[in-house]
Structure formats: C-alpha cells, structure tokens
C-alpha cells in the first residue's frame, strides 16, 4: 500500500472542498470522525466484552445467543456493529474471520481493521489455506483442532471470543482486558500469559 499519489491527493482536495462548499458535509464533522477512530474506537471495546464473557458464564451464554442485543445493552454498539455474531474458540474449534470482498469488520467494537486484514494476500488465502495463513501469524494448531473460516459481509460482523489463557485466574478485569489483543478477536492470535515475578 503506497502513499497517495499527487493526482489522488488533488482529487481528494477537490472533492473535499466541493462537499464542504455544497454543505454536504461540514469540516468539523470530518475532523471529529478522524479523531473518534484514532482515539476512541478500538479493540479495547472488544476486550471488555471478551473479559466479561470469561468472568461471567451467564453473560457469556447470553452473548452467544443474542450477541447484538447483549452488546447493545452494554452500550457498546455503534456503526458497523449492527448485526454481530460471536464465535467462541474452544479446545476443539478455532475460528478466524476474513472479508474476502473488501474489509467488513466490527468497527464499533474493534475500530478500523489492520492493514493485513485488508490486504489482497489475507483476503485471497484465508479461505483456502487457513492453516498456512495462521502459521504466518505464528500459530500452529494441533491436527485435531477444526479451523472454521468466516467470510464477513456488509450485514454480519464477527467477533472471535478467544480462549482465556492459563494462569490468569487471579488477574482483575483491567489486567485481563490488557491481555486481549485485536488479533485474538479476529482469530489470528492465541493468547498466552506469563506471570511476572
């Protein structure tokens, strides 16, 4: 992914000035949207949902049954999180999420997708050779574990519920939330924990 060419910057400038002049959008809104996605919306939101599911079985069951409603009740639903599906990773099943057509992703709870997720490489390969793809992320799964690949679309957004790492029984919510990474909620990372002495 290269920098914008001069030609495209010129096009963007022209379109921006026309949109503002015609009052189709206003400049403050443009600033605010960038700021929201740079500062406020990101994987820390998803991490809250994951940790709550780890700690509270009743919540977890509800989350799996009625994900969109449950997340809304936490006040965490927003744009591009309208229809959520939660995929629970277990000792038998490992879920990974892709959007082969573009970049559908649960923006409301993970922020904007990382570059690798939007890359032609990931989009083309995740559905035919997920094991090889996972290896590039440093994950080697036992042969008995079934890998399920979920192809997102504009209507359904997936969130992987990663397995809670061993040795984290004594950690509080904030410490647990720090452990939960973006990639673990897409399925391309398995969480581990090393207790500090």
């Amino acid at each position: 992914m290269s920098e914008f060419s001069e030609e495209l910057i010129l096009k963007a400038k022209a379109i921006e000035s026309l949109l503002i002049e015609k009052e189709i959008v206003d400049e403050d809104t443009l600033d605010l949207i960038v700021e929201e996605y740079e500062k406020n919306i990101g994987p820390h939101i998803g991490a809250k949902i994951v940790v709550r599911a780890w700690k509270d079985n009743e919540f977890k069951n509800k989350l799996l049954m009625e994900p969109t409603k449950t997340i809304s009740e936490m006040g965490l639903i927003g744009f591009s999180g309208e229809h959520m599906v939660i995929l629970e990773n277990t000792s038998k099943i490992h879920n990974i999420v892709v959007c082969t057509l573009c970049s559908c992703y649960p923006w409301a709870i993970l922020g904007l997708p990382p570059k690798w997720y939007k890359s032609f490489q990931y989009r083309s390969r995740a559905v035919i050779e997920p094991k090889e793809v996972l290896k590039e992320f440093g994950i080697t799964l036992d042969d008995e574990i079934e890998i399920k690949v979920w192809d997102s679309n504009a209507d359904i957004r997936y969130l992987v519920l990663p397995q809670r790492p061993n040795g984290t029984e004594k950690l509080n919510e904030i410490e647990l939330e720090k452990l939960v990474t973006r990639n673990s909620m897409i399925g391309t990372e398995i969480l581990t924990y090393n207790a500090k002495k």
Partner: peptide, 20 residues
C-alpha cells in the same frame, strides 16, 4: 472477489503497531 485467488504471496504488515 478475491477469495481463493492464488499468487498474492505472504501476508504483509504483521508488525503489531500501525497508526489508524
């Protein structure tokens, strides 16, 4: 419609940090 296409190669940008 890229699902299943061959030849794009290894997944890029696997560094943990990147700006939004």
């Amino acid at each position: 419609d890229l699902g299943g296409f061959h030849g794009f190669g290894k997944i890029p940008y696997l560094n943990k940090y990147e700006p939004v």
